[in-house]
Design a binder for these strands. Sequence first.
DNA 1: GAATACACTTAACCTAGATTAAGAAATAAA
DNA 2: TTTATTTCTTAATCTAGGTTAAGTGTATTC
Lengths: 191, 191
Amino acid sequence: MNLLLDTIARYVTLTPEEQERVVSATEFQSYKAKRILLKEGEICLHSYFVIKGILRSYTIDENGAEHVVSFASPGWWIADMYSYLSQRPGQLYIETNEDSEVIMLSKENQERLYDEVPKMERFFRILIENSLVANQQRLIDNLSFTAEARYDKFTKKHPDLIHCLPQKQIASYIGVTPEFFSKMKARLLKK
Amino acid sequence: MNLLLDTIARYVTLTPEEQERVVSATEFQSYKAKRILLKEGEICLHSYFVIKGILRSYTIDENGAEHVVSFASPGWWIADMYSYLSQRPGQLYIETNEDSEVIMLSKENQERLYDEVPKMERFFRILIENSLVANQQRLIDNLSFTAEARYDKFTKKHPDLIHCLPQKQIASYIGVTPEFFSKMKARLLKK
DNA sequence: GAATACACTTAACCTAGATTAAGAAATAAA
DNA sequence: TTTATTTCTTAATCTAGGTTAAGTGTATTC
């Protein structure tokens, strides 16, 4: 449970009472591997802060192809932001990759927290700023780099994830098919 | 000058004194068409709220190709978010498309505003949430849709912009070359 | 521990979109 | 009004990455 408070402490300083309010606004939960927490068309009622394991979010397009939107390892949040913020049906799936533990925060409780503990509004503001920057960078990378360069960037940025994710998920994240990814990897080994 | 206060009023309610603080934290500026406000390698000192005209942000990749990251028409903000938030050299250019008027807000003044007028922290939090959602959607669209579908979405989402942007900028925004864009448009006309 | 499903590889062939090049239209500049 | 500069179009050719298909691990299930 401390991972959350430690993460918050990196951005804002909470009093013990404020920490208590944060804790009581959240809910602990653990899930088996391959458990789907959210499906397309559902409303994303919680955002998840990962304590243990790995979650991922993805869409399935009209041809049935899966596109990974994000991975979340311990210390990171995951949600269908559109659906969570608007409380309307979204397009994302959220699924555990392995046995996982999360802390759940509902939209209501988050809004209540903003009023009770204004520092939490700052905390989340900064978190979202960081997501926005990362996301924008990923967009730029997709527009201007080759698949090989994107893979290279991914391995450097997430050296830990490389080993515990199935290749097809990495392929999907960088935006290529598993077949092409496999071919590309073989090509890279020859160098 | 009222466009800014009106926009803010859509999300939070400010007292007259708070409005005054907002106004005095900002600075008005007008620019001729094709004026570059920010270059790659520079620090983005301000974020710009557009009153009149159109601005755009873009990167230039290693092959010299331009990639439009965003357009801003009246009522919208634009900045190199990475550089603005971190106050480090960024990779984006920001340029006026036409004669334009903007309201400028520096990072310092924005942070001061957060403390003086906490509602402004909420305002910007919501704004950034919206950007994040839009940006994530654009990423998904790039991964799962064809260029034609992305163009179609763009025309529906920004019917106003279609007519006042050079085609090559629209092509760049949706992620294709001007030549392919031209071919695609001709193809669409035949239907 | 056989059976089934799933992840990964390889290879032949295919296509959306890129590149190159050259001309036509439109803007701007002089 | 002419000249330059930039934008847009068209067409031929090329390529990064997709598709299809078949085969080889490797988990998972019963």
